[in-house]
Nucleic acid binder design. Structure first.
Lengths: 345, 345
DNA sequence: CAAGGTTGTCAAAGCGCTTTGGAATGTCGC
DNA sequence: GCGACATTCCAAAGCGCTTTGACAACCTTG
């Protein structure tokens, strides 16, 4: 069923039917009602491609997810982010396109998306420091919003970020306040802007507390369970092992816990753990009885908010840039406690 | 840059340029080379929508992911599946569209996708028993492949599934062989076909081993970490607690381990755990030194294979159906051991 | 050298929609 | 009863591509 058929069925011109369905005022309410009813009865939906050709808009939003070539690692927050964004898109009649790409030909992918007119805008995921994608997107004129920020970029852009610096600064202070002095940072990949900020927050609070910043207690890597496990094991084998861990994600933290358990160390007693928590739907932090002491912020909600931000931007591509800095929420779990007495036992 | 501009730039007709780029034989190699070079130089890519309108194909594949309305639960395998599928799509020039939907208006979503001509085919995720989606898709004529199977559907369809029955049957036998008699099944949602099969495999091996099938030791639910934790705790509090657990996913198993650790039970000694493992990139099973004894099958590879299957099907929509049954691979970890002597200690 | 094939190119139609610029009809005031 | 003005509808152009059918131009053959 297409417009031509439907209109001849109704004895109206395509113009009128199109206008009736798109809510234009040049059509009487009586006719409109008749058209709408017929459209529903015949399950008519305008052909997306034809509509796009005629209007110049694809009503589609792109998400380019780069999969690290080596590890084939997919960011675990991806699913929840999409779920949040997808809801908003659907409410506004947008489709969502996902493009998987190796990190090296990312630029080409964006260029191609634009050249083909495949999408009206994109969400930039996992921004790095001085991320070259932003300038590229500005240059080719593809509207975008950034999930996170990119330190070093002078030009304005729209973004939504969690206050990572603050979250990690507070988390560090919290642990220092409990008497911990050897606090380990199990960070995400430090090419990522968020990881750089987290480290900065950690370091500033360590300094403020008068604690030594020990490179041996700081690690960076893809936030897998195996990574959390391996780093924890390595650090606990040091001559001066940490008494507390600060982790970049709850997936890492699962690995940290595994390592601690394996060594018979009691979490929250012998060793404290604080984690950042993205509120993943399949890996919650224990619900009402939080397990980990955590700073949390829902990536699903972020997805929804960013989607809205992008849709607004597409509507007025030259409007002022907007940004939102979300504060992570503190949740006290059972994974933290006073530093064990180093000279006791 | 569009076809019109490019062709006038070259002093050729649109026909010739189009044919040159699409590899038709009616154009001399000399002209073709000239055209290809110019297209590259001007970064010309045909407009997707116009191309789609003209050809009648969208060169786009749909993935409808239903998010349970209550829990807003996103299947954790989603990201890895997409990564695998996306690679194949890209290699064949297909785009990938994701539609988030509440479970109730799933049918409308498929109908709409077809009516709008938005996609050339879809991957059906998480099939249920007697899944009504298959008949719907047949009826509206939208090509599809199924990730899994749907017991009860008589009509033929193309699918790729893991031999869940066998994996869980063998896993149960394995535990029985170690002397376990009270074996718990922490299953996925038993509206899902795969979960039904897994349960069947479990039950048949329990019967074969002459063990009692105790409903109190069988649970079903969304495969989250919290679920694994809660069920394990509940079962361990029974008068006759299980000595072994069989889990539906490694995410669940993380919850099981947490519950065991919390109670001071040694995994692989006091309690054994076997899990199914989808080989998620961010939650591996310990790499070369597997943690859990597991039956594993990579969901990323499944994504790639299904994508290929669907593309083939789109090319010949009335060809014979194909199906692949993958055997899960056994991996021995440290999470299993002989059943503890019930009368000892 | 005329008849018949190839080869390389093109003009134009068509995909299904939106939108511009009219045109027909109805309504109103005087 | 007539011009002015809404109101309601329509024909046709255009979005950027593919594809059909036609046509020169260039070989082959007998």
């Amino acid at each position: 069923m297409n417009l031509k058929e439907l209109s001849s069925l109704l004895g109206l011109s395509q113009t009128t039917v199109s206008r009736a369905l798109n809510g234009y005022p040049e059509v009487s309410e009586k006719t409109r009602a008749r058209v709408v009813k017929a459209a529903q009865a015949h399950a008519y939906s305008p052909n997306t491609r034809a509509q796009g050709l005629a209007t110049g808009h694809s009503k589609c939003i792109g998400h380019v997810i780069s999969v690290s070539d080596s590890a084939e690692m997919v960011n675990p927050i991806f699913g929840d982010f999409m779920a949040g964004a997808g809801e908003t898109y659907a409410a506004h009649g947008y489709d969502m396109m996902v493009t998987r790409v190796g990190t090296k030909d990312e630029a080409d992918t964006y260029r191609n998306l634009k050249a083909r007119g495949a999408v009206d805008g994109v969400v930039v995921h996992a921004p790095r420091r001085n991320d070259s994608r932003l300038a590229l997107l500005d240059k080719i004129g593809l509207p975008y919003v950034v999930h996170g920020r990119s330190t070093g970029i002078k030009a304005g852009y729209s973004w939504l970020d969690v206050n990572n610096t603050r979250a990690f600064s507070e988390a560090t202070s919290y642990l220092a306040g409990l008497g911990h002095s050897r606090i380990a940072l199990i960070n995400g990949p430090e090419v990522m802007d968020f990881a750089i900020r987290r480290r900065a927050g950690y370091e500033s609070s360590m300094r403020f507390a008068g604690l030594r910043i020990d490179p041996a207690l700081m690690s960076t890597g893809e936030m897998t369970e195996a990574y959390g496990y391996a780093e924890t094991n390595a650090m606990l084998s040091l001559k001066q092992p940490p008494t507390a861990f600060l982790a970049a994600s709850i997936i890492c933290s699962a690995g940290i816990r595994r390592a601690l358990d394996e060594r018979g160390l009691r979490i929250g007693k012998d060793v404290s753990v604080v984690t950042f928590d993205d509120c993943l739907s399949y890996f919650g932090n224990g619900g009402d009885r939080p397990v980990f002491t955590a700073w949390q912020s829902s990536v699903r909600l972020a997805g929804g908010a960013l989607a809205q931000m992008l849709i607004d931007r597409i509507r007025s591509p030259h409007g002022p840039h907007v940004s939102e800095l979300w504060e992570a929420e503190f949740v006290k779990g059972t994974s933290t406690g006073p530093a064990p007495d180093q000279f006791g036992d």
